[in-house]
Write a protein that binds this DNA or RNA. Sequence first.
DNA 1: AGACTTCTTGACAGCGCTTTCAAAGCATGG
DNA 2: CCATGCTTTGAAAGCGCTGTCAAGAAGTCT
Lengths: 337, 337
Amino acid sequence: MPDSVTLSHVAREAGVSPSTVSRVINGTARVAPEKERAVYEAIRRLGYRPNLIAQGLAKGKSMSVGVITQDIASPYYGEVIKGVEEGLGGSPYYPVFASGHWRPDAEREAFKVLSGRKIDGLIVMGGLLPDAELLALAEHLPTVVIGRTVPGLEPDCLTVDNAQGAYEATRHLINLGHRRIAHIAGPLYQQDARDRLEGYRRALAEANLNFDPRLVVEGDYHEPSGLMAVEALLARGALFTAIFSSNDQMAYGARLALHRRGIQVPGEVSLVGFDDLPSSSYTTPPLTTVAQPSLEFGREAARAILSKLEGRPYAFAPLANRLVVRESTALLRQGVR
Amino acid sequence: MPDSVTLSHVAREAGVSPSTVSRVINGTARVAPEKERAVYEAIRRLGYRPNLIAQGLAKGKSMSVGVITQDIASPYYGEVIKGVEEGLGGSPYYPVFASGHWRPDAEREAFKVLSGRKIDGLIVMGGLLPDAELLALAEHLPTVVIGRTVPGLEPDCLTVDNAQGAYEATRHLINLGHRRIAHIAGPLYQQDARDRLEGYRRALAEANLNFDPRLVVEGDYHEPSGLMAVEALLARGALFTAIFSSNDQMAYGARLALHRRGIQVPGEVSLVGFDDLPSSSYTTPPLTTVAQPSLEFGREAARAILSKLEGRPYAFAPLANRLVVRESTALLRQGVR
DNA sequence: AGACTTCTTGACAGCGCTTTCAAAGCATGG
DNA sequence: CCATGCTTTGAAAGCGCTGTCAAGAAGTCT
């Protein structure tokens, strides 16, 4: 412990009672100006920092908010996390992270750990916990859910329209003249993956293109599955001139598979991703993709949870996906494959 | 709070004193088997979970270890963080993260926040804090430093030989026949950036190639600076057939700049990075790079800090960088540029 | 000037848990 | 059968802080 100066040390040094010191620190009550000065002076001299643990115990709150992610190292969650960190900055609250590793039991465990640490609020990013459990949690604990809508908890769920984003991505491809558009879906047990698939289908339907299940492959949101998806597509002899991938990471994998086969992007096949990871502007070619406001997600979630903790009402700012057209998509040129 | 079952509730339920409950929970002393059973039974029935805050206050330790990174969302730190998380898993300790944002004052502040939370140990990843300050910290608090050697704290510093990695990368290029090798350096106020530059120079010297300052551009470890570095190189009319970039992110930027100019990789220019980020196997072409054992860094650091906290001696497992040859490097073909 | 407010302040009782400390229970041995 | 040494157990005192309470100081009003 760097310092073990306690509040009573300060009190003694300043010639006042501990209560008074506590009062000036928290601004809980008026204190004579000269005593206040004396206290500040003593704090400075002793280098006192309140012990948050003790404070937490006394107040019954820990001044921390739990954040449950699936994979703290994934580029997508990284952005959201950063947003949360930023959004909480300046407030007295602090984020503590836990990863669910895409396993409901791990997620449950993560929550238990957080609950042992007596977090005051909870931010859940997606996740696999059943709605019912999340609802139960939210009953006891101010909760905000990102990227998922839990029935009965709608006002606390921060989402953007995944289907709409996917729709626009697909629409963009259609506008470029593509007719045979493959889709690399995310894991379909996840709602957002299903929504994106849905948006893809809607765009097709609207353009009177019929949906061909042989053009859809399910991946797991990681690069290798994108690569394998393209391999699978090619292996089954599917004909396509464009690919809409349910996230950027799989698009990277797809890009590599295409590169290996000597298929030009966007010359022969156009490629669209979803997420707009920071590195997507630096792929070759830079990836056309649906930008998720991930940083804003984090910031908004943080703001929302702060408001709840302070008992203020709150409504989320409207956040939307936005198609970013870069260089991985082009007008359909030839009837290549 | 989901549960506010306290230890005394359990005690009452089990018909024993609070002390006894504490004893069976912590295994601090022998307890009659039947009481022990009764306690466990009561814990189960009430769904009791110890309040870590209270425990922390009573024991004088918070069961948490602080982790100071620069940017929690950066792909490189993400891996290390994940390693720390894994390494701490199973132990009663929990990581609490704070970001220094590459600013010494923010880093200092981050540490203060952590110290207010009474962390029991500290893992510092690189960072910009002066050695002296770090030394002072380590005096009061079990500390492990990753990716940096602090004089006087050597046994607690976990590093790999950056110069050696850079040497091998450059050497690889030389072996492929390259003679004019550009280098995109990291920010030179950081030791690792300097070390990598040093390794590059050593390899050149050893091959009797003379060092040309016009072939070196300093970046900031982010993608745009890699792009700008290549632009700068080209603008100043530098002739080179290979680039060694001080990290992968800048290599991505360089790759894009080359792509924009229609310069083939590795056909006309070979490209080597440093770090081996997860996405580097999925760039086009997959990037030859020096793999840092970042996940292991995290794990080792976690293991080390745990040992220190439990008073066990510890020595780091030897960790080394390793050149991963992929497809962004090739034999020198022509005297192109 | 006396009675009554209004402030400021210190004492003190917790928050939920750990950890002495000493009493009580038990077995052992002379 | 009692002294002796262990073991098991509960009472109680904190850990560092907050927040209630009531006492004392100061100010207000008639």
